[in-house]
Design a protein around this nucleic acid. Structure first.
Lengths: 136, 136
DNA sequence: GCTTATCATATGCGACAGCATATTATTGCG
DNA sequence: CGCAATAATATGCTGTCGCATATGATAAGC
């Protein structure tokens, strides 16, 4: 069974996708980490910043700046938890949601372009399998 | 059509795979770039170092150290081209080939572990589609 | 022969990553 | 109350990356 390594095939693909995403993210004035945060918050609310960092695989000390920017731009709310004043409750704002959705739409349009190389059935299968692997 | 971004699914997967590869590479005293070079040279000979760097998506100035190490370890040959003495002809050695194959075997065993989450048919489909996307 | 291009190589720069650690506020427990 | 644990935050260190640029050898075209 002679095949290239998984990583050897996936890595360039990821590189390509990221390169496609960059201009889109810049167009909406969000960083990659920022977009990652918006996505995490839109999908599932998170109570602490450390938990958020963990969820998106970021460093808890390095995520602060990202949160500052997002808050500054009005894309997230960061309110102290009245029950535990050490904790900042994180929530995406309506505007944050709009930005996130707009970015995601544009990104997925680009992604479909990349997948055009595949037969329609393969494209569907690829996405389905990938989601399975991802939600594992 | 509600799905996570491709990159959002692929990135953690790549991270996981790389984390699995690291100990294997260390066990054989090759760096990631080194392994990448060995793979490229074993699959298709390359004439110039710049072309090699390009082929594996590396920086032509940063690849030198990697080549030095590989040569030092006897895994590649770097001989001046008699026809054009600016050029160093790159070739993998028998030992380099052995190392490359050993590493690849171990890596692919690990990769199969990751893919165990999938049904056998899906695993095959995934690899097939990925190869198609990769060789595009 | 002179100039321009090409190749390998070296080096400096700025960005960013992961990691560790320190600080400060706050909580909860004994 | 006193103390250990936890959350957010700041900061320093180190390694790596991509990028630009320089240099020295050599080749090739004019």
């Amino acid at each position: 069974m002679e095949r290239p390594d998984l990583a050897a095939m996936l890595y360039p693909l990821v590189r390509e996708l990221i390169a496609l995403e960059m201009p889109i993210l810049e167009g909406h004035d969000v960083s990659m980490w920022g977009y990652s945060v918006l996505t995490a918050l839109d999908d599932t609310p998170v109570r602490t910043q450390a938990a958020l960092a963990d969820a998106i695989g970021a460093d808890k000390s390095r995520i602060i700046g990202t949160l500052d920017e997002l808050q500054q731009a009005g894309l997230i709310d960061r309110t102290p938890d009245p029950a535990d004043r050490r904790v900042r409750l994180l929530a995406i704002t309506a505007q944050g949601r709009r930005v996130r959705r707009a970015v995601r739409t544009e990104i997925q349009v680009q992604e479909e372009q990349v997948l055009t190389a595949l037969a329609p059935a393969d494209r569907k299968a690829f996405l389905r399998i990938l989601q399975e692997l991802h939600s594992r």
